[in-house]
């Protein structure tokens, strides 16, 4: 099938996702990933900690773990869809970073992403494909923040590679 043999033009792919996102907006809400990831964090923590997790006020007051939180299933769907696409296009393969520098950068980057999402209540997806199209004030604040952060991150990235 040609769809799985050629790379799809990103403009076409994102235009299709945008139309789907409008339908999702009408049914449950706009595309977001950070909320689902937070709920997964809570569910994983609950799995290991049991009811002791409710001693941490965040999980009792702000984000009580709930397996029926719809945003979780966007992320699970994305990993499944990507797996399907990779297998059908014969692009699936196990790969991993080989250098310690890369693992360190991924670790720091991942931690910063997690902290940033919870501090802001939004991720990059809800910034660009949720809040800003809804003309939410938070969208403009978030876009300003992510642009500044990307600039600083790019500078650090370049310096790390140069050193």
């Amino acid at each position: 099938m040609e769809f799985f043999q050629k790379t799809l033009e990103p403009v076409i792919a994102l235009a299709m996702i945008a139309v789907l996102d409008i339908f999702l907006f009408l049914v449950v809400g706009a595309w977001t990933v950070g909320g689902g990831e937070t709920m997964m964090t809570g569910l994983i923590a609950k799995f290991f900690m049991g009811h002791a997790i409710y001693r941490i006020p965040f999980w009792k007051v702000a984000f009580p773990p709930d397996p029926y939180y719809w945003k979780i299933y966007i992320s699970l769907g994305m990993v499944f869809g990507a797996f399907l696409g990779a297998v059908l296009s014969r692009e699936f393969c196990w790969r991993m970073p080989h250098r310690l520098t890369e693992w360190i950068m991924i670790t720091i980057g991942g931690l910063l992403m997690g902290i940033g999402i919870r501090l802001a209540f939004v991720c990059n997806v809800s910034t660009f494909f949720g809040l800003t199209p809804e003309m939410n004030l938070g969208g403009y604040l978030a876009v300003s923040g992510i642009l500044a952060g990307t600039w600083v991150g790019t500078w650090i990235y370049k310096k790390t590679l140069e050193s």
Binding site: V33, G34, E37, M105, I106, I108, G109, G110, L111, L112, M113, G114, I115, G116, I117, R118, L119, A120, F121, V122, C123, N124, V125, T127, N136, L137, G138, L141, A142, V143, S144, G145, I146, L147, A148, G149, T150, W151, V152, G153, T154, I156, Y157
Partner: peptide
Amino acid sequence: VGLNTFIGLFLFGIGMVLAGACT
């Protein structure tokens, strides 16, 4: 939304470049 929105996405922006991947 508030100042946390800006600061949070600022940290996120740095993080996603270092990790080489977003959400």
